[in-house]
């Protein structure tokens, strides 16, 4: 490999190192520290003024106590499970709504596509926070939705949606929908229409052709979309705290409580590290599996 090529490959690795590995190691280090009444509120802190000896003292004080603590209270695994459930269901709903939209966009006349694309991206022009606040106005007992429902006579009592898990699902699906639509759209857009014709010529039904050609070829887009929705939704804090009720248990809120109410940065960091592992291990396994399949196909 020549130097230019190595440099080129080095750039993304440097990026990963500076923006992922270094912060990860800092959090990992804090998760192995102990709570202390000081600034910052944990001990030990690395004192490089004493050189190597200082580092050894620092190293010796680190332990996995906080991880053991996490297993002693069912709050944590309940919060992980409940977050996984909310994120998975929300991803499913996002896919359910996002796929038809992307499909319709990809099959729309060429001159419409830029405007449709624009409509999908348009919400990003307003702050995320304001859009979530707007949902409070829509979903509250005196909100637009209930007013319309009452006015049309569909319900006689206002529906309690705000401060429930339903509102959290609505918030996540709404916020992350573009992240589902865009990757699916980009794969569907490149889809060769003649493949569908070929499938039908060979005796495939319309639905069968749709399933085995369109859906199959859109798979990479669907997978990318699901990752883009599922990963941030799992650690979501803003949406459950604004739209969710006191019964909404999500790991993002648990993290907030560890940091702000307990002031226990080490335990909070341990919670964050576990969250990361929950995400990374399945994704790495999945990628490896995909890779193997691709190699087998070839």
């Amino acid at each position: 490999m020549n130097l230019a090529r190595r440099l080129l490959i080095g750039v993304p690795y440097l990026w990963l190192f500076a923006l992922f590995l270094v912060p990860f190691l800092i959090v990992l280090k804090i998760s192995m520290s102990d709570y202390a009444i000081s600034i910052p509120p944990y001990t030990p802190t690395l004192d490089l003024s004493e050189g190597w000896a200082g580092f050894r003292v620092f190293w010796a004080a680190l332990d996995f106590e906080n991880y053991v603590f996490l297993t002693s209270d069912d709050l944590y695994w309940k919060a992980y499970l409940s977050s996984l459930q909310i994120a998975a269901l929300a991803t499913f709903f996002t896919l359910l709504i996002g796929f038809p939209i992307a499909y319709a966009m990809a099959n729309a006349p060429d001159e419409w596509r830029p405007s449709l694309m624009m409509l999908v991206i348009l919400p990003f022009w307003t702050s995320f926070l304001i859009r979530v606040y707007a949902w409070i106005g829509i979903l509250s007992n005196e909100g637009f939705l209930n007013q319309i429902l009452m006015w049309t006579g569909l319900v006689s009592e206002p529906l309690v949606i705000l401060n429930t898990n339903t509102a959290v699902y609505i918030g996540i699906v709404y916020t992350y929908l573009p992240f589902m639509i865009l990757p699916i759209y980009s794969t569907l857009e490149k889809l060769d229409g003649s493949l569908l014709e070929a499938a039908q010529d060979l005796g495939c039904t319309k639905i069968g052709a749709f399933w085995s050609v369109t859906v199959h070829l859109a798979k990479p887009g669907v997978i990318a979309g699901c990752f883009l929705v599922f990963i941030p939704a799992l650690g979501e804090f803003v949406i459950p705290s604004l739209l969710g009720g006191s019964k909404t248990l999500m790991i993002g809120k648990v993290l907030w409580e560890e940091f702000f109410s307990n002031r226990d940065w080490p335990v909070a960091s341990a919670v964050a590290i576990i969250l990361l592992l929950i995400l990374i291990i399945p994704i790495v396994l999945f990628q490896r599996n995909e890779q193997k399949q691709r190699e087998a196909d070839q």
């Binding site: 209270d73 709050l75 019964k247 248990l249 409580e257 109410s261 307990n262 226990d264």
Partner: peptide
């Protein structure tokens, strides 16, 4: 103290979530 604080916070979270 930190230990009681943790118990208090945990209790509060439990009370609020009704679990």
């Amino acid at each position: 103290d930190p230990k009681t604080q943790r118990i208090a916070t945990r209790m509060w979270a439990k009370v609020k979530s009704g679990s």
